[in-house]
Simulated scan of single mutants.
Amino acid sequence: MAQNIKTSVKHMVAKANAQITTLSIDEARALIDSPDHVIVDLRDIRELQRTGKIPGAFSCPRGMLEFWIDPASPYHKEIFNQDKTYVFYCASAWRSALSAKVAQDMGLAPVAHIAGGFTAWAKAEAPIEDLHK
């Protein structure tokens, strides 16, 4: 028997995008050295090793996000306990849209994500930190 999926990922992403802030590549590029922002890379370590990351981005695997944000979690990371704007990205802005929405729902604020994700970032020839140095 097939599963009876009630909503699609595409619908969930569209719903999240309607409720969160989306930054253009140029807007995000201007934040690289900002002391008031934390850029969060949600991609898997294999993706990071293969393609690099936005310079200075904090790596948080998508599966750990909620646990690292919640101060009551034994996995909490202090980086998520700052008075800063959190800017999420992934490969194509689907995971980051859902992540920004979840983070916002948890009370992390303000949050945003980067339109087009790392794919758009690389295509725009924005700076990339090579992790093989």
Rank of each mutant, 00 (worst) to 15 (best):
M12N: 04
F80Y: 08
M64K: 07
L48K: 04
E78Q: 03
L23E: 10
S59V: 08
A28H: 11
H11S: 08
N81D: 03
A16S: 09
W68F: 08
K77L: 07
S59M: 07
S96L: 07
A120R: 10
S24D: 03
P35H: 10
W68D: 09
T21V: 13
A91W: 14
G56C: 06
M106V: 07
K53T: 09
L31G: 07
N17P: 03
D44A: 05
S92V: 15
D44M: 07
L131N: 01
H11K: 06
Q3W: 15
A30N: 13
Q3K: 14
K15S: 05
A124W: 01
A16Q: 05
G117H: 14
G52K: 14
A93P: 12
T51H: 14
P55L: 01
D26R: 02
G116E: 07
M106G: 05
E47N: 04
A2Q: 14
K84V: 05
D26K: 01
A2I: 14
V38R: 12
K101N: 11
L108C: 10
K15P: 02
H11I: 13
F118N: 02
V102T: 14
A57M: 13
M1A: 05
I69R: 04
T119I: 11
L42I: 05
K15T: 12
G52N: 12
D41M: 01
N81C: 02
K10N: 06
I32R: 10
A18T: 13
P71V: 01
D105T: 09
Y75R: 02
A109S: 12
A115F: 11
P127G: 01
E129S: 02
A91E: 14
I25G: 01
V111W: 15
L131P: 01
M106Y: 14
E129Y: 10
S24Y: 03
A97Y: 06
W121S: 01
S96A: 06
P110I: 06
G63V: 14
R29F: 03
V40R: 04
T51W: 15
A112H: 15
P71H: 04
I114H: 07
D33N: 13
S34K: 15
D33W: 11
D36R: 14
K133C: 12
Q49V: 11
N17T: 05
Q49E: 13
D83G: 00
D33C: 09
A124K: 02
A57Q: 09
A72N: 06
R95P: 00
V111T: 13
P110T: 06
S99L: 13
D44V: 07
G116W: 12
I128Y: 09
G52R: 15
T51P: 12
I128Q: 08
C60N: 06
D33P: 08
A122P: 01
M12E: 09
Q104V: 02
Q3F: 15
R46H: 08
W94M: 04
